[in-house]
Amino acid sequence: MPDADVNIALPAMRVSYEAGVLDESSLAETWHEQLKLWLDEAIEFKIPEPNAMVLATADREGRPSSRTVLLKGLDDRGVVFFTNYTSNKSHDLLATRYASATFPWFSMQRQVSIRGGVEKVGAAETAEYWNSRPRGSQLGAWASPQSRVITGRNTLNSALNSVRRRFADAEQIPVPPHWGGWRIRPEIVEFWQGREDRMHDRLRFRDNRDGWKVERLAP
């Protein structure tokens, strides 16, 4: 039978959003400037992993999946994250060339949602980020067959030890051929600020081909 305590508790769970206001007059001129502003405020607010974003993709049959990745690049071209090109997410992106991502800053009663087409990041940009990564993370990228079924943790440990031996004398570890960045080039970027009585502020930048248009959405 269902857990009665859980059934009673869930409908009663709610938060009154009273932390802030978002209006057109306070919005930055561009979506990326506004995102950077809110990201800086999230960092100052000491939100854990403020650059974490929930990435949603779909396969060729339209079946969606989501996971959390880390924002590692932001400019007027879009938002960038890095991953294994043989991963499930990369297979989805290669199939559909489209994605969405959401920054869930719960403690600030804010979120930002982005959706648009995707493209692979260039080799030079990938190498620049790769060279900033800790050596252990670089070794892990070589060792892990991301998203594949493995027999156990020992399989990973064995692969990592093998990679450590392979690059033991290397001062710099090269970028794996199966690893790199993806950029989401936004068509829509929505900024959401929680308000009382669920009358939230929702302002979005929409690319209408002639430039970006700001629109207010009903909550």
Results as ranks from 00 to 15, higher is better:
residue 12 A to T: 08
residue 13 M to K: 13
residue 13 M to H: 12
residue 14 R to D: 07
residue 14 R to I: 04
residue 14 R to N: 10
residue 15 V to K: 15
residue 16 S to I: 11
residue 17 Y to R: 15
residue 18 E to V: 15
residue 19 A to E: 14
residue 20 G to H: 07
residue 21 V to Q: 13
residue 21 V to I: 15
residue 22 L to T: 10
residue 23 D to H: 08
residue 26 S to K: 09
residue 28 A to F: 01
residue 29 E to F: 06
residue 30 T to N: 08
residue 32 H to F: 02
residue 33 E to F: 03
residue 34 Q to Y: 06
residue 35 L to T: 02
residue 35 L to Y: 00
residue 36 K to V: 02
residue 37 L to S: 13
residue 38 W to F: 11
residue 39 L to I: 06
residue 40 D to S: 14
residue 40 D to K: 13
residue 40 D to R: 13
residue 42 A to D: 08
residue 44 E to H: 08
residue 45 F to C: 06
residue 45 F to V: 01
residue 45 F to Q: 09
residue 46 K to F: 04
residue 48 P to F: 07
residue 49 E to L: 13
residue 50 P to I: 00
residue 54 V to C: 15
residue 55 L to Y: 08
residue 55 L to P: 03
residue 56 A to T: 11
residue 57 T to F: 06
residue 57 T to E: 07
residue 58 A to I: 10
residue 58 A to Y: 02
residue 59 D to L: 07
residue 59 D to N: 15
residue 60 R to W: 02
residue 61 E to A: 15
residue 61 E to G: 05
residue 63 R to A: 08
residue 65 S to A: 14
residue 65 S to Y: 03
residue 66 S to D: 06
residue 66 S to H: 12
residue 66 S to E: 04
residue 67 R to F: 03
residue 67 R to Y: 03
residue 69 V to F: 08
residue 69 V to D: 10
residue 70 L to Q: 07
residue 70 L to F: 04
residue 76 D to A: 14
residue 77 R to E: 14
residue 78 G to P: 00
residue 79 V to K: 01
residue 80 V to D: 12
residue 80 V to S: 04
residue 81 F to A: 06
residue 81 F to D: 09
residue 81 F to G: 07
residue 82 F to G: 08
residue 83 T to N: 05
residue 83 T to F: 06
residue 83 T to A: 05
residue 85 Y to G: 02
residue 85 Y to D: 03
residue 87 S to T: 00
residue 88 N to K: 10
residue 88 N to C: 02
residue 88 N to T: 09
residue 89 K to S: 07
residue 90 S to I: 00
residue 90 S to C: 00
residue 90 S to K: 00
residue 90 S to Q: 00
residue 91 H to A: 14
residue 92 D to K: 01
residue 94 L to R: 14
residue 98 Y to I: 06
residue 98 Y to C: 01
residue 100 S to F: 02
residue 101 A to S: 04
residue 102 T to R: 05
residue 104 P to Q: 13
residue 104 P to F: 15
residue 107 S to R: 13
residue 108 M to R: 11
residue 108 M to K: 04
residue 114 I to W: 00
residue 115 R to W: 09
residue 116 G to V: 00
residue 117 G to F: 05
residue 117 G to K: 12
residue 117 G to N: 11
residue 119 E to I: 05
residue 121 V to D: 01
residue 121 V to L: 13
residue 122 G to S: 11
residue 122 G to L: 09
residue 124 A to G: 04
residue 124 A to R: 09
residue 125 E to R: 03
residue 126 T to I: 03
residue 126 T to E: 00
residue 127 A to M: 11
residue 127 A to Q: 14
residue 128 E to W: 05
residue 130 W to D: 00
residue 131 N to M: 14
residue 132 S to P: 07
residue 133 R to A: 06
residue 134 P to F: 10
residue 134 P to R: 07
residue 135 R to Q: 14
residue 136 G to I: 10
residue 138 Q to T: 07
residue 138 Q to L: 06
